[in-house]
């Protein structure tokens, strides 16, 4: 900002601190198409060998496309469920006269900070009991439920900022509360819906613990579990392969991140507006 101070000391410090990140992520890309001699820093030959997992199954591992499809189904279902449930519940808490509204809201506020990962043991047992263990549906529902308090909280915040007059005008124009919500209010909270949608998609896409614990079977494996099992397998320890799978895995995330960076900042800042 101000011209009264020099920038270069800050810049130097920041660059030094950021070196590990830059190194790791540039080698992530570089190593997927090159080979490096052991003990050397720089790659010495170009190869596409590390991408072979795309067209041939790795021994003992599921098919990458099946796994990718699972991940896609998982992440998009979580996104759709979180969106539809939070956008209705958030509206009810923000605008409708429901009994116990106060209590619901306090509950959402408390749960949105609650570390849900501590519940994984109980959830594991619940899924076993109700027979949803080792199914994609089970993990989807669990993941959705755990994201809901944050989602509702965020949507409520966006609804709160929609002017009341818009809704009042809608009522006077003869629309029902539902029509008012659907045709007048929902379009006003589009930024919130996009932000929450991208956020829950990315959370689902990157989630490791829930699918690993709740649906470990090969046929419902997602990319996080696939990559982890690849690394855990001592038979083919090959970093460049891991990185290729990793890059394949992370590319959609990075693209979405670049597109929606501004909208995501709010949520990555803890879901509080400011």
């Amino acid at each position: 900002m101000s011209q009264n101070f020099k920038n270069w000391p800050i810049l130097t410090g920041l660059v030094l601190a950021t070196v590990p990140i830059v190194l790791m992520y540039s080698y992530l890309v570089l190593d997927t198409v090159t080979d490096t001699k052991p003990g050397s820093i720089f790659p010495n030959s170009f190869t596409l060998e590390h991408w072979r997992f795309l067209y041939e199954d790795i021994e003992g591992k599921a098919n990458i496309w099946q796994v990718t499809l699972n991940t896609l189904v998982f992440a998009s279902s979580v996104m759709l469920l979180v969106l539809s449930v939070s956008s209705t519940a958030g509206y009810a808490l923000s605008r409708l006269n429901i009994p116990f509204r106060r209590e619901f809201l306090a509950g959402v506020l408390i749960l949105h900070a609650f570390p849900s990962i501590t519940l994984i043991i109980a959830i594991f047992l619940i899924l076993q009991l109700i027979g949803l263990y080792n199914t994609l549906i089970g993990v989807i529902i669990v993941m959705t439920s755990l994201q809901l308090p944050l989602g509702i909280w965020i949507m409520k915040g966006f609804y709160d900022s929609v002017p009341w007059e818009i809704e009042m005008a809608g009522l006077q124009d003869g629309a029902s509360r539902f029509t008012v919500w659907y045709r007048l209010v929902l379009p006003q909270v589009r930024p919130g819906i996009i932000a929450l949608g991208v956020f829950s998609f990315l959370s689902g896409w990157g989630e490791y613990i829930l699918p690993t614990v709740l649906a470990p079977a090969n046929n419902v494996q997602v990319l996080s579990g696939y990559l982890a099992s690849l690394i855990a397998d001592d038979r083919n320890f090959e970093f460049n392969l891991f990185k290729s799978v990793g890059l394949f895995y992370a590319t959609p995330v990075v693209i979405m991140y670049l597109f929606f960076q501004d909208k995501l900042m709010n949520i990555y800042g803890g879901g509080t507006k400011g």
């Binding site: 007059e165 818009i166 009042m168 005008a169 007048l184």
Partner: peptide
């Protein structure tokens, strides 16, 4: 309404 409450979209 005072703010006119036109539907922005």
């Amino acid at each position: 309404f005072q703010s006119y409450a036109l539907y922005p979209h």
